[in-house]
Amino acid sequence: MSKKKPVPLNHTAKVILELITYNRETYSKFDELTTEELCKKLQPGQVNWVNVDGLGNLEIIEKLQVHFGLHALLIDDVLNDQRPKSEEYEDYLFFTLKMLYRIDNTGIDYEQISFVLGKDFLISFQEKEGDLFDGFRERIRLDQGKVRKKHSDYLLYRLIDIIVDNYYNVLDRIGDLIEETEDDAYENPSNQSFYKIQSLKKEVIFLRKALYPLREALSKVVKGESEFIKEENLPYFADVYDHVAHLIDSLETYKDLTSSLLDIHINAMNTRMNEVMKVLTVISTIFMPLTFIVGVYGMNFEYLPELQWRWGYYIVWGVMLAIVVAMLLFFKRKKWF
């Protein structure tokens, strides 16, 4: 996966600001807000989930930076491709990771998502419109589960958990692709199957870069190093940590499988080449005595023996056919083909 370039300055790029505020008794959702409207609708004492879709309009990002007092280095991490990590500032916790959607013939569809967790707010920065959270938003609205009874740190846990759960879908699809590619490597080894194997290896490497740092980031949270995560919610983050550890174990298995796929492909290609060479060798061996015979009787000497035989032509053909049949029976008996 190539590293993304920094988001260019563009004051006209579309940015969607969404705000969900809630507690045990109340719930409100606002879409398509301006930064001024969003800041006015924030509710102290409630959980305020600010979701930002699109990072191209730096004017809006800078207004949010000023209102929430976000560090310039944090904004730089939001706008540029970063390895998953967790960093604690004086007034908030920063957490970033990769959100995977699916894998297809062109690779893994993903985006970077960053979270800023404060005392009564959570900001999620997404690179593009659309995410994995629509079902969870509905659960918040309907007051299903624990989310309305918890604070913003529990909201952060739920969003990370949803993202990590979808890693399983991507890994399962990679497993299916490995099986399909393995069948192709056995049945029809070709340049196309080789390219598929190389593509799978790249995707596995990308997932390793996404999962190993994510485990480290969650480890910092689980160890209770952050004052923004309540102790009662640490077991939830520990559960996500366990999921990531399980994903890494599965990924290591897939890494070994993709490496073995290359060996299978090479062996299959060598086997096919050996079969071709064997056939060519058999054909060449059969024609060697035939070439010798026709070479001898093709010489232009005037007193060459047997040239005056009436049935010589047919006798030579019979001898050559007998030689071919005898050699084929010999090869068959020796199980050379």
Rank of each mutant, 00 (worst) to 15 (best):
L122D: 03
T285H: 00
P8F: 02
E36A: 07
T258M: 09
K85G: 01
L17S: 09
E127F: 00
K119I: 11
S199N: 13
V170M: 01
G224D: 11
I229R: 04
K119P: 13
F330A: 15
I163A: 15
D134Y: 15
N233Q: 01
L207Y: 02
N10D: 15
E302M: 09
V282P: 00
P84I: 07
Q82Y: 04
E203C: 01
I315C: 12
F237S: 13
S124F: 03
Y89E: 10
N51M: 13
M288C: 15
D120N: 12
E182N: 07
K63T: 12
H151R: 08
D176N: 03
V316P: 10
D256Y: 10
E306N: 10
G130S: 07
F301C: 04
L304V: 06
H151L: 09
A245G: 06
V66D: 15
D31L: 14
L117C: 05
T96R: 14
D184E: 10
T253H: 05
W311D: 14
H71S: 05
D184Y: 06
D120F: 01
R137S: 03
K209L: 15
G312E: 14
W336L: 00
F121T: 11
R333E: 09
H151N: 12
E62D: 10
M327K: 01
R102M: 07
F94Q: 05
N188M: 04
P305V: 09
K230N: 15
S28W: 03
H265F: 15
Y303M: 06
Y154I: 02
N105D: 14
E90A: 13
P44E: 05
L74K: 02
L79A: 14
E182F: 10
L251N: 09
I323V: 12
E231G: 02
K230P: 10
E275N: 05
I315M: 14
G295N: 08
L93T: 04
M299Q: 12
N300F: 06
V244M: 10
M299K: 09
G107F: 07
Q144V: 01
L200F: 06
P213W: 03
L58S: 02
S2L: 05
L234N: 01
I163K: 08
E275G: 02
L155A: 08
S284I: 00
P213V: 02
D183M: 07
E275F: 00
I323Q: 04
R310G: 13
E227G: 04
Q308I: 13
I113D: 13
L257F: 11
F133N: 12
S284Y: 01
L73T: 13
T281P: 00
L290E: 04
Y27E: 04
I75D: 00
S28Q: 11
H243Q: 14
H11Y: 15
E127Q: 06
E111W: 02
F95L: 11
K128Y: 05
R208V: 04
I163G: 10
T21S: 12
L247V: 00
S152D: 04
N57K: 12
R158E: 03
E25D: 12
F121A: 13
S152M: 02
